[in-house]
Design a protein around this nucleic acid. Structure first.
Lengths: 215, 215
DNA sequence: TAGATTGTTAATCGATTAACAATC
DNA sequence: TAGATTGTTAATCGATTAACAATC
C-alpha cells in the first residue's frame, strides 16, 4: 500500500479477476483455496495475491488458506458489487445493445433503467423490456431519476457533450466506449473501454511473434 | 528499455494513444509537436513520452520537437498498422456486429473477411456486405483462407473450444471479448477486452469518490 | 547566436517478489 | 505436535521522473 493509504490502481484492477475465479471455484463446489492455488489459476504470484488481499484485511487463515465464499464476499464489498446500480445507456447501437443484453451485468446488480439514441430509426424499438428513448429527453429523464452510471456508446464526436449533460445532472460514473478522452470534474469516476488501443496492442504482439519466427 | 532489449508492455500500450492524438493534430493541420504539448494532450509526462519514443529511435529534433506526420508514421510502423490484416469474427451477436460495423477498423487496415455464428437465426443474415456463416464451416474456411486475426465474440463457454480450432488452423492472433481466460501456445498473441473487469473497477472508484464526499 | 527542446543518464519512486516468523 | 500457509517485512526489480548536456 502506498504511504498515503490509497490502494494502487494495479491492485484494484486485479480484484475482479480474483472475484471471477472465486466464483468459478464455488460453482465447482470448492470452498477452500490457497494463495498458491489462486496463483496457478490467475497467473499472479502467490506473494502478490497475499499482498493484494492484505491491503484490505486478513481474510485468510494460517495453515489453511482462504475460504472461497467469504473471500469472494469480501472482494464483492470492496468493489461495491454488494450494491445495486441504476444504469442508463446512451447510444443504442451494437455496443449499447450488447451491454443492455448482457445478462451478467444484471446478475451483479446493474439495472439498465433506460436507453437513449439520436437515430429516429432506433427510437421506439424495444431492447429486452425497454423502449429506446429519444436523446432529446435524456436531460429531462435524468433530472427525475437518480442514476448511478451512464454507459457512453455514442460516436466519439458526441461523447463529450453527452458527458457534460449527464454529469451536470448529477451522474458520477461514466463507462465510456468511445475512442476518445472525456474531461470530467474530479468527483466523477470515468472508465474507458479502449477497443482500438487493445486491437493495436494485439497487432504489435502478433507481429513481434511472427518476427521471432523468422529469426 | 529493459536489459533484455524487450520493450515493456506499459510502453506499447501508450503508443496507440500517441498515435490517436497525432492523427487528431494532423486533422487540425498541426504538423509540429513538442513532448510538452503531447504531455498536455495525453496526460503522460513529457519525460515519459521522450523516453517511450526513444526506445524505438530518435524521432525528434532538438530545439524543434517532433514532426507529427513523420512521428505518426513511425508509430504506425512500430505497431504494424502499415500492414493489412485479414480478420474473421466468430460470434455474430451484438459485439461481433459492433466490430464488423466499426468503420475505424477498416480504415486502419483490418479487413473483415467473414463472420460465423452458431445461431441458425443469425446464419445467412447480412452484416455490411458479409453473410453470416455457420460455425460448423469455420474450420473448413480457415484451412482455405490465410487469416491473421480472429475476434472471439462467443459466450464464454464456447471460447476455449473456438480458440483451439482457430489456432490449430494457424491463426496467430486472437482478440477475445469473452470474460474468461483462454489458453494458447506461445506463438499465438492474445488480447482480452475485459468489459466486466472494467465495469467493476469503475464501480470501485465511483464508491470511493462518493465515500469521500460523505467524509 | 540565443532559445528551445530533444536524447539520455541518473535519481527516485513504487510495485513486485522473496523470505520467514507467526499461527492455525 | 508437525505441516501448511498466511501476514508482513525486507530486498529486488522495473518504471517513472528529473536533470541537463547535446544540438538544432
Amino acid at each position: 500500500m502506498a504511504k498515503n493509504g490509497k490502494i494502487s490502481d494495479a491492485v484494484i484492477r486485479r480484484l475482479p479477476k480474483y472475484y471471477r475465479y472465486l466464483g468459478d471455484l464455488l460453482k465447482n463446489g470448492i470452498n477452500r483455496i490457497s494463495s498458491n492455488e489462486l496463483s496457478r489459476l490467475t497467473g499472479f504470484t502467490a506473494s502478490q495475491i497475499r499482498q493484494d488481499l492484505n491491503n484490505f484485511g486478513g481474510f485468510g487463515q494460517q495453515g489453511y488458506g482462504y475460504d472461497a465464499k467469504k473471500l469472494r464476499e469480501e472482494i464483492s464489498k470492496i468493489l461495491g458489487l454488494d450494491h445495486k446500480y441504476k444504469v442508463v445507456i446512451v447510444g443504442a447501437g451494437n455496443i449499447g445493445q450488447a451491454v443492455a443484453n448482457y445478462a451478467g451485468f444484471y446478475e451483479e446488480g446493474f439495472e439498465i433503467m433506460a436507453l437513449f439514441d439520436k437515430n429516429p430509426k432506433l427510437v421506439g424499438l424495444r431492447i429486452r423490456d425497454l423502449e429506446i428513448m429519444d436523446i432529446d429527453d435524456l436531460k429531462e429523464y435524468l433530472t427525475h431519476h437518480k442514476i448511478d452510471l451512464v454507459v457512453l456508446c455514442t460516436p466519439k464526436e458526441a461523447s463529450q457533450g453527452i458527458a457534460d449533460i449527464v454529469t451536470s445532472c448529477g451522474v458520477q460514473a461514466i463507462w465510456n466506449f468511445a475512442p476518445t478522452d472525456i474531461k470530467v470534474t474530479d468527483n466523477v469516476a470515468i472508465e474507458n473501454v479502449r477497443m482500438n488501443e487493445s486491437l493495436y496492442t494485439l497487432v504489435y504482439y502478433y507481429n513481434e511473434k511472427s518476427n521471432n519466427f523468422n529469426n
